[in-house]
């Protein structure tokens, strides 16, 4: 499947689940999503956001964001996110990492909510009118506990090392990717490569595999996490993220960066051929 075709599944106003920078971000999908242009998006960061989130915000496609943090890691704050917060052009729901996981877990179980410790007395809780506090019904009295409602994203998007021809995706130990897929109505995955063997045929690979039951589409996108790294495949290109961080300090710099070749244009080339032939294939 072509990345542009995959991006067309995203409709205005949808809730998108996106993974943390080290888990497998489908950076390859960022440009196609921006070119597709479905806006008013609500982002759900699992459990934090970075470059992709900043770029979608910079492109004006985001209405709201729920997250435990947004940053560019070593490259510092996320410039387009920070400006949008300062100017109030996007709505933010601040969370904390395990609350994000709790919302997905509730959806995975088909439950209306998941209880969670912590949070009481924080301003995170104070600003969340969608969360509730009840007294633990199993205690003798008191013992307040927070309830996090189930979160059911319309679409989860991530990048993984491999898929097989049946649409099974190997996620290794990055189980948050499975949690995202279980909770979401659709899951779009880009991968480094498509393998011939059935990933469910061997016990060794099956344990780290997300079955095709939860996968809507798979597209080939070699080095599709770049400039993020992909676990077991290639490291983060910190210099490139620093380059972005510097460029995106202004809206003009951001636009220039996104238009430049460095930001890549997976959408303009067929997904079946590598978009960056100059780069060495991942080992």
């Amino acid at each position: 499947m072509d990345l542009r075709e995959m991006a067309r599944r995203v409709e205005p106003g949808m809730l998108l689940a996106l993974p943390v920078d080290y888990a497998g971000v489908s950076m390859a999908m960022t440009k196609p999503l921006i070119e597709h242009g479905a806006g008013d998006l609500r982002l759900f960061c699992v459990p934090t956001g970075g470059l992709q989130v900043d770029q979608l915000i910079g492109a004006g496609l985001v209405r709201s964001i729920e997250t435990s943090a947004v940053s560019l890691g070593e490259a510092g704050g996320a410039p387009r996110f920070n400006q949008a917060i300062r100017e109030g052009t996007i709505a933010i729901r601040d969370a904390t990492c395990p609350a994000i996981h709790a919302g997905l877990m509730a959806a995975q179980k088909g439950n209306p909510f998941q209880p969670m410790r912590g949070l009481i007395g924080s301003d995170i809780l104070r600003f969340r009118d969608d969360w509730r506090v009840i007294d633990n019904p199993f205690a003798d009295g008191g013992d307040p506990i927070v309830l996090i409602p189930a979160v059911k994203p319309d679409i989860a998007i991530f990048h993984a090392p491999m898929a097989d021809r049946h649409g099974n995706v190997w996620i290794g130990r990055r189980r948050e990717l499975a949690a995202m897929a279980y909770a979401s109505a659709q899951t779009l995955v880009t991968v480094e490569r498509i393998v011939d063997e059935n990933l469910l045929a061997s016990e060794m690979s099956a344990a780290g595999t997300l079955p095709s039951l939860y996968v809507t589409d798979v597209a080939l996108a070699p080095r599709g996490a770049w400039p993020y790294g992909l676990w077991g495949e290639y490291p983060t290109d910190t210099a490139e993220i620093l380059r972005y961080a510097k460029a995106a300090r202004t809206p003009e710099g951001f636009a220039e960066y996104m238009a430049s070749s460095g930001a890549s244009s997976m959408a303009s080339s067929p997904a079946t051929s590598p978009s960056r032939p100059a780069l060495e294939p991942a080992q």
């Binding site: 459990p47 435990s68 943090a69 949070l119």
Partner: peptide, 8 residues
């Protein structure tokens, strides 16, 4: 950036 896991 945000609270990360601190509130827990």
């Amino acid at each position: 950036p945000g609270s990360f896991g601190s509130a827990y």
